[in-house]
Design a binder for these strands. Structure first.
Ligand SMILES: [Mn+2]
Ligand SMILES: [Mn+2]
Ligand SMILES: [Zn+2]
Ligand SMILES: [Zn+2]
Lengths: 145, 145
DNA sequence: TATTTATTTATATTTATTATAAATAAGATT
DNA sequence: AATCTTATTTATAATAAATATAAATAAATA
């Protein structure tokens, strides 16, 4: 389950940032998307509705949300693009190195890990990005490699 | 425990790639390093010994080792640099978002996860990059934020 | 040794992201 | 409401990591 639209927008507001139409649209897309979008994907998706939208605004808003801990930057999944995840709860991201889709898997074990890692390392944990890589069922069929 | 020098070099050899002095030096550094180096770190470290070394050779060798499954590209840890890990066994990488060091934690639970994920998703798993982010004990003391 | 092939190096190019500054919008003040 | 002030957006330029290209070098083969 992704961070809700409400939690994204209220985090921005609490940080003293204005809830502009552009920022609200970016939050809405992040909250509704299940596809771990890149900055470019967000920009292209919103452009029809906001023709004057600039890529800078997308980058700035993503940066703010990441710094507020509302969004994770997952990094690339073989396509050289940084993918973002509005679901910051501990879960496994499963990326296909062929079609570059990223799906989620619930992982109850991970929640338990958190406490153990803190204890073992002395770290103050702030977030996790758990990526497994492989070939999705579809790509296993079609892939020649 | 990192991939050994021997397994890195024999993987290159088996792939039909020549074991040049530059490639051997890169493998040696990867096998001996515990600091999850970036391409730039490898380049700078080897330059005194190999003054003619080109950054392209570092990028090419890393790319080959990643494609052979001998090295993982962990992605950035808040410093906008891709870090590499010659330890491809399932383990947790714990990155400090302040000093950007990455340490390893053994995680027996992770090995069990692998099978469960395959079963649940139908994916053919090829690797994992497990990053936890936080503040290391040192940075918890000094950090103002 | 000569020939072929792989690799390295040097250089140019690409491209995602960041920086900068002007234009615009919003909020506050009178 | 009109003016002032600040935040935000946009357009543009700059940055820098990674990639592509091609000449130079090294290694393997005949
Ligand atoms: Mn996810
Ligand atoms: Mn590691
Ligand atoms: Zn796929
Ligand atoms: Zn630290």
């Amino acid at each position: 389950m992704s961070s809700s639209y409400a939690s994204l927008t209220s985090a921005l507001k609490q940080a003293g940032l204005r809830l502009t139409p552009q920022r609200l649209a970016i939050c809405r897309f992040l909250a509704e998307s299940r596809e771990h979008p890149t900055a470019a994907m967000i920009y292209e998706h919103l452009r029809p509705e906001y023709p004057s939208l600039s890529a800078m605004t997308v980058y700035n808003t993503l940066k703010a949300l990441v710094e507020l801990g509302q969004v994770n930057a997952l990094g690339d999944c073989g396509d050289d693009n940084v993918h973002y995840d509005a679901d910051t709860s501990p879960h496994i991201n499963l990326a296909c190195i062929s079609c570059h889709r990223i799906m989620d898997l619930p992982a109850p074990q991970i929640e338990a890990l958190d406490g153990e890692i803190s204890r073992a390392s002395g770290y103050q944990l702030l977030g996790a990005r758990l990526m497994f890589y492989g070939l999705c069922p579809d790509c296993q069929k079609t892939r020649v490699l």
